[in-house]
């Protein structure tokens, strides 16, 4: 995977003439005020980070847009990114996406690109015609690759076997040696590595790692096992995953306790009794007073009748 900053082709004939005209006018103080010149000069530059990620054969481009604010880089949300294949040209436009609150835009590549015969693919992500930032683009070149994972049990030992390969010129998949790949288990807040160290792939493109037997899974012991090649120079990030019941089944303790931190149905009896006694005592008094007000009303009515 190779990436570089490129400048989009913006000097079309019409644009060149317009620029020349504006340059001449710029010398004329009537047309351009000082403040307008300043505002053009001060248009900030955004920085684009472009990464290729392939999960279970689905390729996607992930862009992060940042800009410098008071000396530190901050993510920029709401920026439209144009994605191109090969180079910036209208006919090469793959699609568009807008950066989210984290300044990220995610673009799923079409199936056709995965299935074509090309071994190398070049992608460009570009900010164009943005009112806030200068035009800027980032290019990335990735080599097609496959990542396969097999889960095997041998003599009561679990093994995760990973194969990394890449098509040659004839389209046949050949092993990719010396590729760093890792195996994880998906957890709630991230991926847990199943070993402290991992080997690189051998000359057959293979890497094996023993899978621990003590990782807690769901009620059935299911775990999501992930094999991953992270940010490889040629292939980008490759990932494949599979659900397997290799974990320790989770046993949920169904016994409930009446505690302060329990749910509303399991409030401590002492608290319930105390609050209800107070509530009944106070609201009982209020109800008594309101009832006395009805009595006041009735007495008044009787006294009117008596006086008549």
């Amino acid at each position: 995977m190779k990436s570089k900053n490129i400048h989009p082709h913006k000097f079309s004939g019409l644009r060149l003439m317009l620029l020349l005209g504006l340059s001449l006018a710029a010398n004329h103080s009537i047309l351009f005020s000082q403040s307008e010149e300043d505002s053009i000069a001060e248009k900030p530059t955004a920085r684009i980070g472009l990464v290729y990620t392939q999960v279970n054969q689905d390729g996607r481009l992930v862009v992060t847009v940042k800009t410098k604010v008071e000396g530190a880089f901050e993510n920029v949300p709401g920026v439209k990114i144009n994605f191109y294949q090969t180079e910036i040209a209208a006919e090469n436009l793959l699609g568009k996406a807008i950066t989210n609150n984290k300044g990220q835009a995610d673009f799923l590549l079409p199936d056709s690109l995965q299935k074509d015969q090309d071994i190398l693919h070049t992608y460009v992500a570009a900010i164009e015609g943005n009112g806030q930032f200068e035009d800027v683009a980032e290019e990335i070149t990735v080599k097609k690759a496959v990542l396969q994972m097999t889960l095997e049990e041998e003599d009561s030992t679990y093994w995760v076997k990973v194969f990394v390969g890449s098509p040659d010129e004839s389209g046949e998949i050949v092993p990719a040696p010396d590729v760093e790949c890792k195996v994880f288990v998906k957890r709630l807040y991230g991926n847990l590595p199943v070993a402290e160290e991992f080997d690189v792939t051998d000359e057959d493109g293979m890497m094996s790692v023993e899978f621990p037997r003590d990782i807690p899974g769901d009620k059935e012991g299911n775990l999501t096992i992930i094999a991953m090649v992270e940010e490889h120079e040629e292939f980008g990030t490759l990932e494949t995953n599979e659900v397997k019941a290799w974990g320790v089944p989770l046993v949920i303790n169904q016994q409930t306790f009446r505690e302060l931190w329990s749910n509303r149905a399991n409030a401590p009896y002492s608290l319930m009794i105390l609050t209800n006694v107070i509530l009944l005592g106070v609201w009982g008094t209020i109800a008594y007073i309101v009832a006395r007000l009805f009595k006041v009303f009735k007495i008044g009515k009787t006294s009117i009748s008596a006086s008549k």
Binding site: V296, I299, G300
Partner: peptide, 13 residues
Amino acid sequence: INWHDTPEQKAIM
């Protein structure tokens, strides 16, 4: 509420 300053009303209040 029909208040007529009767002793009973005053007492209740």
